[in-house]
């Protein structure tokens, strides 16, 4: 006579039986999430000058128009400079703060950390309005430095979070022993802290770059002649008209995202890539 199967085994079998159903139930949500975005790809490969689906003739007109357009090239270059400066400022200030805060060993540490994270929760438009008014007094509206400073404020929380997470794994005995062996502040920073937080600094820098390169609202408020970022140009063009060139830009942006996610997964695996991205899951600056 066969023994009745163990309860855990029954449970596992049931689980396996319901799994396809759970996955199927998620399909509408998945399609809704992904399909609309993918739509821009075929629409960009048109031979004509209007946006249609499917294109009546396939071709690369959109890409040729895009690369021939001085305006797009200029704004992309400008945005790259803004984002590079923003990354530098965020990484420097947030990295130092993440190291220094626990060293203060004061009671309000959690409060200071919360204050540093404020830009994550702030409605971007409020920040944009305030920065516009203040930078107007400083007369740095419509300048590269002005936009970069504003973006670096948005970026600080991301670097701060990633570096803090890395530091929480650092054994403070290392710091203590280095200092007791006579290492000065600089040596401790260079030989103890920096190696421990370098990966965190890099992924933080990447997040800041993405935030800055995507940011529309602040850049729209404080843009000026000669200081128009790439997202602001895209935003204003979209409000008037959809051209094949816009489809081409969107396809390239999408390709960059897909590429970086795939590279991230190949380098770090799915779980760590997602963990790193989810660390920055605070609100999304570009909305």
């Amino acid at each position: 006579m066969r023994k009745p199967p163990k309860p855990a085994l029954v449970a596992r079998r049931r689980r396996a039986a319901t799994t396809p159903l759970v996955v199927i139930l998620a399909m509408p949500a998945l399609l809704f999430l992904v399909l609309p975005i993918l739509l821009v790809i075929p629409m960009s490969f048109t031979a004509g000058h209007v946006v249609e689906f499917p294109p009546s003739a396939w071709g690369l007109t959109a890409y040729r128009e895009l690369f021939a357009d001085e305006g797009w090239r200029e704004t992309i270059m400008f945005s790259l400079k803004v984002s590079a400066l923003a990354v530098f400022l965020s990484v420097l200030t947030a990295g130092l703060a993440a190291i220094g805060l626990p060293r203060l060993r004061m009671r309000g540490e959690g409060l200071v950390a919360a204050v540093i994270l404020i830009p994550l929760a702030m409605p971007v438009v409020t920040l944009a309005l305030g920065i516009f008014q203040f930078f107007n007094q400083l007369q740095i509206n419509g300048t590269l430095v002005g936009i970069a400073i504003a973006h670096s404020v948005l970026g600080v929380p991301y670097v701060f979070l990633t570096v803090r997470a890395a530091l929480s794994k650092l054994d403070l005995a290392l710091v203590r022993s280095a200092m007791s062996l006579g290492a000065g502040t600089w040596s401790v920073f260079r030989w103890v802290y920096l190696p421990a937080i370098l990966p965190a600094l890099l992924s933080g820098a990447l997040l800041v770059f993405v935030v800055s390169f995507d940011e529309v609202v602040i850049a729209l408020f404080i843009s000026g002649p000669g200081a128009i970022t790439f997202p602001v140009k895209l935003f204003t063009e979209v409000q008037f008209n959809l051209s094949p060139a816009i489809m081409a830009v969107s396809t390239l942006l999408l390709a960059a995202v897909v590429l970086s996610v795939v590279v991230g997964i190949l380098l770090f695996g799915v779980r760590r890539t997602v963990y790193r991205i989810a660390l920055g899951d605070g609100g999304g600056a570009g909305r």
């Binding site: 993405v210 969107s250 996610v261 991205i277 570009g286």
Partner: peptide, 25 residues
């Protein structure tokens, strides 16, 4: 793995691409 990858791609895609997509759709 595939669901996570697709969700992350949708998550990271800039809002500008999304408004272009929904405009065209």
């Amino acid at each position: 793995a595939s669901l996570t990858t697709l969700v992350v791609i949708a998550f990271l895609t800039t809002v500008l691409v999304k408004i272009v997509a929904f405009n065209a759709l």
